[in-house]
């Protein structure tokens, strides 16, 4: 049973799920075992309503203003932003590579779509990540069942609609099993859509 650390206030607008913000930062060049990854990731906080979300988000640095190798993760409460978590282990993620300058807007649109239940895939969404890197930024959305093609197609189509991406944007789907095998989150065969 889940420990309810937060609840929506009486006049606040409740969300379908409770969510937790996480932040991670890595020194480039260091190896990342799943253990050191877990040590590098910090919880920012959990919220249960629209208003509580804004209280966190309004005080957070925009992804576009982060430097180095940093990630914000927003996952349903109880799901760790790790491939190995029970909710993620059979899942995968849609990955979108963004040229510098687009991350803040795209991240906001992505998480608003997730919090507002715009994806319409039942319990399938696990969370979303924005990854700030040197040459580009990457956003991704994780779901539970990588083999469920109807779900992954619906997530892709919703992403296209809510992100309003440039027409040449490359999207790729990667299973966490593949990420565990090749020990990298993003490099993979790209499927241009």
């Amino acid at each position: 049973s889940r420990k309810k650390s937060v609840v929506p206030g009486p006049t606040e607008h409740p969300l379908q799920y409770y969510y937790t913000f996480w932040y991670s930062r890595r020194t480039p060049g260091r190896p990342t075992s799943s253990q050191s990854y877990e040590q590098n990731i910090k919880q920012i906080g959990t919220f249960a309503s629209v208003e509580q979300f804004w209280r966190f988000y309004s005080h957070m640095v925009c992804p576009g203003d982060l430097s180095g190798h940093s990630d914000f993760h927003l996952f349903k409460e109880g799901i760790k932003p790790m491939w190995e978590d029970d909710a993620n282990k059979n899942g995968g993620k849609w990955i979108i590579h963004l040229r510098k300058g687009l991350a803040s807007r795209c991240w906001e649109n992505l998480i608003l779509a997730m919090l507002g239940e715009q994806f319409m895939v039942g319990e399938e969404i696990c969370g979303a990540v924005v990854s700030v890197r040197f040459q580009e930024d990457i956003i991704s959305i994780w779901n539970k069942t990588a083999s469920d093609q109807a779900t992954t197609a619906r997530i892709r189509d919703t992403l296209r609609r809510v992100l309003n991406l440039p027409p040449n944007t490359v999207m790729e789907y990667k299973t966490h099993t593949d990420s565990i095998k090749d020990k990298t989150s993003f490099r993979n065969t790209k499927i241009t859509l």
């Binding site: 006049t11 379908q16 629209v50 208003e51 509580q52 649109n109 507002g116 239940e117």
Partner: peptide, 21 residues
């Protein structure tokens, strides 16, 4: 059961609510 669905505009309109400060 019923799902709680909010569109982008609804969420953005709550941003400046006193409850969100």
């Amino acid at each position: 059961g019923t799902r709680i669905i909010y569109d982008r505009k609804f969420l953005l309109d709550r941003r400046n609510s006193p409850l969100a400060q």
